[in-house]
């Protein structure tokens, strides 16, 4: 099982992701924005990061770029609400900047768990 860091400003999204991941036996850490998430990634041993794209303080794109700089091998899944004009393109940028996968919200447990397994296997 893996230690997975969820970075999302929406508490309900964090809660949902945590329950889905826990159902597979993963250990979940939560961060409400990019800065907190970066601190957690630096301080804790993290196997995978799931990060929203649109967030206050540190935008998702910057968070992903900073995480990739911190650990070039760290698997990252970028997620997004996919609504505003500025969001769809950053989701693609996130992949370019090093996100292993990108997934638009909303999604069910199966979709995210497939990507989690795939990300962990590719690095493990």
């Amino acid at each position: 099982m893996a230690r997975i860091l969820i970075i999302d400003d929406d508490s309900l999204s964090r809660y949902t992701l945590a329950r889905i991941l826990e159902s597979e036996g993963h250990e979940v850490m939560e961060a409400e924005n990019g800065s907190v998430g970066m601190a957690a990634a630096r301080d804790e041993a993290v196997d995978l990061v799931i990060s929203d794209i649109i967030m206050p303080q540190m935008e998702g794109i910057e968070t992903i770029a900073a995480l990739r700089k911190l650990d070039p091998d760290l698997p990252i899944i970028a997620i997004s609400g996919g609504g505003s004009l500025a969001e769809k393109v950053p989701l693609q940028h996130a992949r370019v900047l090093g996100a292993t996968h990108a997934l638009p919200k909303p999604f069910g447990p199966k979709q995210i768990l497939v990507l989690v397994r795939d990300s962990l296997n590719s690095t493990g």
């Binding site: 309900l12 809660y15 909303p106 447990p109």
Partner: peptide, 14 residues
């Protein structure tokens, strides 16, 4: 739509 998708995530996911 952005907020709708955020709202739909817990509904569908949970």
């Amino acid at each position: 739509a952005h907020d709708f998708n955020n709202a739909l995530l817990p509904i569908i996911g949970l």
